[in-house]
Each structure stands twice: as structure tokens, then as C-alpha cells.
């Protein structure tokens, strides 16, 4: 029969309490303002903005994206305006929103991660950093740090040392042992981990016999990767005590709940926002509706509630 009272949707993601577990994934939500015509952005649990580097990056040559069955490949190459223009041009709008803004950051070297963390620390409106050690589409940095536990730990410790903000570390699925990386990052001081970034993938045009992406390989996202993401969230959440944020093909409230039950404290919507610009708001409404229908008072009680008996 369900509860008449509103379910408690708040979740703790490590040094940061969100009003609900629905966030938008970096690189799929622009700098948020693009989506203002479609939803009240302040309803979101948090907004994670496009990955920022110390210097502006032009990104990769086109074609940068290709659609595949139930998903897409991208090799954007972290095109972004650089941290200074981000602070000057994008933050004034973002800080007015009544929702935490988490800045995804990427460096080519460990030192760059430290420098960008230092630069963003204390910038009004920046609630946390998401340290990207998992982008498959850049030559240097990115997944080079995310596939080795020692390197991942070093980047994490450097980011932590250089800012007073909560640090979420975004992990790559392109590894053999996700638990080892998760543990290394936790030991290095991460406040939370988010996973999965895209899976390294490839598509070929049979007529031209050329790769469909100019970058040859790219990152696979969308509903096609969800079962892999759920599995890795499950594995990672059992390896660490810090909160785990689930990413990978979340399109509906059911998808989000699946991640939460498997061990995620919150989720990020990515590719889904391309198909439906209001997808995040619909997922949020769906979670609320499902909790009411099930008579569950709090989403936090659902985290990691997977039954294995």
C-alpha cells in the first residue's frame, strides 16, 4: 500500500550529502546550462560537469562518435575550455544552482592533477572533485593512471593533498581487477569512487575498411554496458568502505535502483541525457515513486541490499 510520507532520498557520498542519488555524468551534460530548458537543475542530486584540464584542449579530430546497437562509441578527447575559463565563464551560472557542482578533472601528469586540484580548491560553488583517471581517449593521462593501482593511488593522494574538497575518483573498467584499484584509491585517501567510465571499443566500416572513429578506438557507453557496470560496482563496493557511485547505461529508475541494490550510494546518468534531455528528472521521479510503492522509507537503506541467500 506504500507510505504516504515522502521517502528520504538523501545519500552520503563521502564528505558530501546529496538530496537524492541522481547525478549527471561528466561529458554528457555539458556545463549544465544547456539542460535548463528541460528540467529544474536544482532538483538533481549533483551535477558533474565536463572534464576540465589545466589548459584548454581542442579534442580529437572527427568523426568522434558512432552509434552501435544499444550504445555509442565516443572519442571526444576531452575537448574543454581549460580551468581558468571554466572558473570565469561557467562557474558564475553553476554556483547559483541549488545543487552541488562536482568538477571532473584530468591531468597529463601527476603534477597537473595536483595543480588543477589546488586551483579549484576554494573556488566558490565547487563542492567536490571527480578525478578522472579513466578516459580512454587521450594519449597521456587518463586511463594510463587508472589501470595501475600504484599510479591511481599516487594521483588520488596528490589531488587530496592539494585541495580541501571531497575527492571522488572515477575508475576505468578496462582493468582485470577492479577491486585492487578501488582499494588502492581508498587507501590513498579518496572520499568516494565512481565507476565505470567507458569501455575501450572499436567499430569498422566494412566498405572503406576504416575505423568508424578517427581516433580508431573509443569509449563504449549506453545501455549496452550496464550489466558490466553493475558487476563492477558490486565488486568494488565489496572491496572498499567508501561510497561507490554507479555509472554505465543508467536510463531508467529501475536501472538506478539496480545499481543501488548492487552497492552504489548514488548513480550518474550519461548517454541517457542525449536521448532524453529530461532523463535525469524522470529517473529521480521514478525512484521516488518506486520507494513509495514499495513502502521503503529511505533510499540509503537500499544501498548494497543485494540478497545472495
Amino acid at each position: 500500500m506504500g507510505l504516504t510520507a515522502s521517502p528520504d532520498l538523501t545519500v552520503d557520498i563521502g564528505g558530501l550529502t546529496l538530496k537524492n542519488p541522481v547525478m549527471t555524468a561528466s561529458g554528457t551534460f555539458g556545463y549544465a546550462r544547456e539542460f535548463a530548458p528541460f528540467m529544474d537543475l536544482s532538483r538533481l542530486g549533483a551535477i558533474i560537469v565536463k572534464g576540465i584540464s589545466l589548459k584548454p584542449r581542442p579534442g580529437n579530430p572527427p568523426p568522434r562518435i558512432v552509434e552501435i546497437a544499444c550504445g555509442m562509441l565516443n572519442a571526444i578527447g576531452l575537448e574543454n575550455v581549460g580551468v581558468e575559463r571554466f572558473i570565469a565563464d561557467k562557474m558564475p551560472y553553476l554556483r547559483r544552482l541549488d545543487t552541488p557542482v562536482i568538477v571532473n578533472v584530468l591531468g597529463e601528469t601527476v603534477e597537473e592533477y595536483g595543480e588543477i586540484a589546488r586551483r579549484l580548491s576554494g573556488v566558490p560553488g565547487v563542492a567536490a572533485l571527480e578525478v578522472n583517471i579513466s578516459c580512454p581517449n587521450v594519449q597521456k593521462g587518463g586511463v594510463a593512471f587508472g589501470s595501475d593501482p600504484a599510479a591511481a593511488a599516487k594521483v588520488t593522494a596528490t589531488a587530496k593533498k592539494n585541495c580541501a574538497l571531497p575527492v571522488m575518483v572515477k575508475l576505468s573498467p578496462n582493468v582485470t581487477d577492479i577491486a585492487a584499484i578501488a582499494k588502492a584509491v581508498e587507501d590513498a585517501g579518496a572520499d568516494s569512487i565512481s565507476l565505470i567510465n567507458t569501455l575501450l571499443a572499436m567499430a569498422v566500416d566494412i566498405n572503406s575498411r576504416r575505423p568508424k572513429l578517427a581516433n580508431v578506438m573509443g569509449g563504449l557507453s549506453g545501455p549496452a554496458i550496464k550489466p558490466i557496470a553493475v558487476r563492477m560496482v558490486y565488486q568494488a563496493s565489496r572491496a572498499v568502505k567508501i561510497p561507490v557511485i554507479g555509472i554505465g547505461g543508467v536510463t531508467t529508475a529501475d536501472d538506478a535502483l539496480e545499481f543501488i541494490i548492487a552497492g552504489a550510494s548514488a548513480v550518474q546518468l550519461g548517454t541517457a541525457s542525449f536521448r532524453d534531455a529530461a532523463a535525469a528528472a524522470k529517473v529521480l521521479d521514478g525512484i521516488d515513486g518506486w520507494l513509495r510503492q514499495q513502502g521503503i522509507a529511505s533510499v540509503a537503506g537500499l544501498i548494497g541490499s543485494l540478497r545472495l541467500d
Binding site: G27, T28, F29, G30, E34, F35, K50, K55, P56, R57, P58, G59, N60, P61, P62, P63, R64, I65, V66, E67, M72, N74, I76, E79, V81, G82, T271, S273, F274, A277
Partner: peptide, 22 residues
């Protein structure tokens, strides 16, 4: 090709004749 049509995915890049800074 484009995924979002509104500037979020940055998938529809094309070389510019006169590249702006960065």
C-alpha cells in the same frame, strides 16, 4: 553525426578555417 544536438556531447566537431585559441 551527433549525439545530443545541443552542445553537450561535442561529438559533431569539424575543423575550423581559423581556429580560435585553444
Amino acid at each position: 553525426a551527433m549525439a545530443c544536438g545541443m552542445g553537450a556531447c561535442l561529438g559533431c566537431a569539424r575543423p575550423a578555417a581559423r581556429p580560435a585559441e585553444g
